[in-house]
Design a protein around this nucleic acid. Sequence first.
DNA 1: TATTTGATTCTT
DNA 2: AGAATCAAATAT
Length: 169
Amino acid sequence: MIGKYLVRQNGTGITAGKIIEVEAYIGPQDKACHASKGRTPRTEVLFGPPGISYVYLIYGMYHCLNVVTERAGFPAAVLIRAVEVNGELIDGPGRLCRALEIDRSLDRLDMTSGESMWFEDRGAAIPRGAIGMFPRIGVDYAGEWAKKPWRFRLQTSSGTKGRRADLRR
DNA sequence: TATTTGATTCTT
DNA sequence: AGAATCAAATAT
């Protein structure tokens, strides 16, 4: 997914963000994956077919956007952590969702339907080696699973020049 | 019904 | 290091 575009359409227009950083959450054994504690109303979507969004509220303040991956029956998803919009880095899942106006109304959306939110391949070739692998963030509670190098980030020249948007209310 | 927690971000 | 802030999970 790195280098592809996340496109968001709302009432006011279309915003496209190049995907810079993602994290993978893979399977029922992955203690960091929300599905590791079994099926609940909240995590049910993770067990379904791929291509469906999973948006949840975290810490009472921020939304996180994921997309379900893998076949139906095997729970897995990818968290979108950072995108680049018009050359500006939006770094962090909470900031990203605020910037693109993504909230729980977009939970369980079919992202292959081309409505409200979808992915596009705009042909940007990502060189091998341009993608770094790192441990996932904020999952220390997951024991050994916290050490898995399942965070992937595109090393961009603009990687450090992004402005920090003030997201306070 | 009550308490704890969390795939974050911001201020101090 | 701590606050903001709440739905979902867990404990009671």
